[in-house]
Every structure is written in structure tokens, then in C-alpha cells.
Nucleic acid binder design. Structure first.
Lengths: 231, 231
DNA sequence: TTAAAGAGTGAATACCATTAACCATGTGTT
DNA sequence: AACACATGGTTAATGGTATTCACTCTTTAA
């Protein structure tokens, strides 16, 4: 019947989490926000953990959608622009949604994953798949230079194969290694920007970001696209 | 008088934080741990925030000391070994102290910084200084190849100068940029390892770490030292 | 000897989560 | 139409938390 209350509660929960931080997301606060007493919410959510879980699911979907949209916005034949725009979208979304970023890709994730059953590795899979398709295209076009299988440390190679299987990629593990190398740098920059340890000097992360993108695109044999469209 | 109670409380707080996570660090729990009622702790700490702050200060000192020790352990003339060992110590400490890592360099930091006044940028300063001295040595030995000032984007250059001034470094901003490039990758790997998003494939982060170190040392014109001593 | 400062306790207030018991309301069936 | 029942909410109760205040005891200082 009242499916709208569930929708409202989710929206309120999301807003509270964004404004007050995840520790401010309480059953009582959400109940106040939707004009109901706290126990009522137990009809819809599994207590506080369920509320957090609901926000997590919503945020995950929104994040993936945002990034995918930014990639789709580019010229479908311009892989450089797609990679650049997708990565930029990750940065922009993360900065605009710091609490949510923490839930998806920071310290919040282990906590969310521990609180309820069946939290999937959806971010690594989806994001890996999204960018993986672009890497696949570069690979098939023969533009990537990467390590041969036998030049990769055996233990690392085995890990890369596991990753490839889980994300559903189909190119050599040398390409997977390239992805991981790129992600390592992007992720480091993201955490620097979101958590703000270097805010005293790098309040605006864009110069470092663009410098990094030039670097990473170069690593993939690409150059910055002149047709990049940023939302 | 009872300075020992303050010591005990700090130790208990640290243990609870490590075992239960930062949200389990409650005034009541610490009080139980030292056999006293909660209000008693208000004589020593500024409530829960003060307790968190005390843990933060302790952990900061321990972290810096651990890394400095690992660096000192190496041949003082072997900069490669010092960089490698120092970075490895950061990884090892972070994995062994995930909650504390989060407080120093993750999502916990903004929260701690917001809770009490005068939280210094001690980590960025100290760690930057520690590694900065090694970079300074490489620079003065003329082994580093880096961008000239005029080849760096002006906004980025200004940020690098701010960083250099805050950390007390004395080499060209091209070298500072090298440091930031290295840190970006190290930090990304740390967050990956500590937060465990890719645990399904990279449970053991060492292969990726060693691969990264080879990369970074190469960037600095160095090779892996044969005399590396890992604790 | 006495006054004051230090260090703790207990009680009170105000949050929070969670469960249990209860009540209204509408829906479907006989 | 009347009745049973599932749905969706309520209030009440339990127990956890932080924090403040008033009070007591003990130690120190004059």
C-alpha cells in the first residue's frame, strides 16, 4: 500500500546521511523526517542497518548511472574522451557526495558490508566493467603496450586472473595490470581530494587531476581528446 | 596525582578503538575498562571527543615513529632501501592498524579534525618531511629528472609551492610534483588494501606493492636495493 | 586544626535502538 | 451485511549512550 512511505524514508535517509554524516543517520531522525514514530520504520527496514543498506543500494545505483552517463555523453569513437570524462565524473561525484563516497569506496564499505548480509562487490564489478570495455576496445585496436604474461610475477598474475574472472574481462592480464595501475592513481587522488589531508595546499584537485589524466592517457598510448565534453 | 589513570584510560581507549572500531570507543566502555564511572573521565578528557583526540595524538606519534625507525634501519647511504623500507612500513602499519589508519589518513580524519580545535596537519607535514629529506638527497646528487618550473601548469605550480612551504622543503617544485605523483600511487594502494574493495582478488597486497615500488623507484632513477632490510 | 582543592560517585536529563503489546483500518470472504 | 484477518501504525518498556550537576570523600596546604 504505502510504498510511498518507503520511498520518502529512503529519500530522507539519504539527505540526512549527506548532511549529518553516516553516524547521524538514525532511525529516530528518519522517523521524524517522514512524520512517523521510530518503530513504524521497522515495517519497512531492518532497523538502522537496513536503513544504511537502503541508502547504500540507492547510492550505488546513482553512482554507476552517473558515470555511465558521462561516458555515454562522449563521441562513441573517442575512447580518450570516454576515459577522461568517466574518470572526471568519478571525481566530481565523489567530491559532491563525500559521505556517499566513503560508503562506497572508503572506510564505510567494510562497515556496511559487515552490518547486513549479501552486500555485493557491485562497485568493483560495475566500474571495472565500465572501464574494462574501453580497455578492451583499445586492446583490440592494438594500441596498448603491456607486459606479457610471463613477465608478470606469478602470484600477481594469479591475482590478476582472479580479478579478470570476477569482473568478466577478456583481455590479457597485462591489460588488467594496466587497469589496476590506472585505478591505483585515480583512487589515491580521489581519497586525497575527498578526505582532504592535503587541503592546505591542494584545495582544488583539478590541476593534479588533469596532470594525472595526461599521464594515464599517455600510458595507454592516447592523448587528451580535443572533443571532451564535461557536464 | 593520578596521572596513571590518564595513561590507563588512553591505553584502554586505544585498545577498544582497535578492536571495536572508532564507533565502539565510548566513554562508558573506557570507564568500564579502567574501573571507574563515566563522569570520572571528564576530569581527564573532554568527553568522547577528547578521548578520540587523545587516541589520535598517540597514534600519530606511533605512526611517525614506526616509519622513521624503518627508514633509520637501512644503510644511510642507500636511498633506494630507505624509500622502499619506509613505504613498506607505511603499508605494514596501515594493514596492522586499519582503524587507526582511517583516523590518520582516511574518513576518520575529517571527523576528528571537526570534533576538536587545533588538530594539526601533522601527518602530511611529518611524513612529507621524512620522505622529503630523501628526495632532497636525490635531488642534490643530481639523479632526479623532473619538469622545469615553466613546464608546470601555473595553478598547479602555485599549489606545489604552497605544499613545499608548509612542509619545509627546499627543492624545485618539479621534485615536489614527483613526490606527489609517488604519494598518489602509494596512497591509492594503501586505501585499496586497508578498505578491501578488491579483497576478492588482491587479498595479499604485497605483489602489487612490490610492482609499484619498482615502478616508483624507476621514476626516481633508482633500482630496487639488494640490501633492503624489512622488519 | 581547618580550609580548600582534587577526584571520584550518584542522580538527572536527553538522546538513541529495539522489542512487545496493542489498536485502527481496510479488504476479502462467507 | 458481518466477520476474520492482514496491514500499518501506535504507545510502553528495556537498556544502551553522553553529559551535567550536586555531592562526598580524601588529600594537601596553611
Amino acid at each position: 500500500m504505502r510504498a510511498e512511505l518507503e520511498r520518502d524514508a529512503k529519500a530522507v535517509a539519504r539527505r540526512i546521511a549527506a548532511e549529518e554524516g553516516i553516524e547521524g543517520l538514525t532511525v529516530a531522525a528518519v522517523a521524524r523526517g517522514v512524520g512517523v514514530t521510530p518503530p513504524a520504520l521497522y515495517r519497512y527496514f531492518n532497523g538502522r542497518a537496513g536503513l544504511v543498506r537502503a541508502v547504500y543500494d540507492d547510492v550505488t545505483a546513482e553512482f554507476i548511472d552517473t558515470i555511465a552517463r558521462a561516458v555515454r555523453c562522449q563521441d562513441p569513437d573517442d575512447v580518450s574522451a570516454q576515459l577522461h570524462a568517466g574518470t572526471r565524473a568519478v571525481l566530481d561525484w565523489s567530491l559532491a557526495n563525500k559521505v556517499e563516497f566513503d560508503m562506497l569506496m572508503g572506510a564505510g564499505f567494510p562497515k556496511v558490508a559487515a552490518s547486513e548480509e549479501g552486500i555485493p562487490i557491485v562497485i568493483a564489478r560495475e566500474l571495472g566493467g565500465l572501464f574494462g570495455r574501453l580497455f578492451a576496445r583499445l586492446w583490440h585496436e592494438g594500441r596498448l603496450t603491456c607486459l606479457a604474461d610471463e613477465d608478470i610475477d606469478p602470484v600477481l598474475a594469479s591475482q590478476l586472473r582472479t580479478y579478470r574472472a570476477n569482473v568478466g574481462l577478456e583481455f590479457p592480464i597485462g591489460v588488467v595490470l594496466l587497469m589496476v595501475i590506472c585505478w591505483r592513481q585515480i583512487y589515491g587522488l580521489l581519497c586525497m581530494a575527498v578526505y582532504g589531508h592535503h587541503k592546505f595546499a591542494f584545495e582544488n584537485p583539478l590541476p593534479l587531476f588533469e596532470h594525472m589524466m595526461d599521464d594515464l592517457l599517455g600510458l595507454l598510448g592516447l592523448t587528451r581528446s580535443p572533443n571532451l565534453r564535461v557536464a
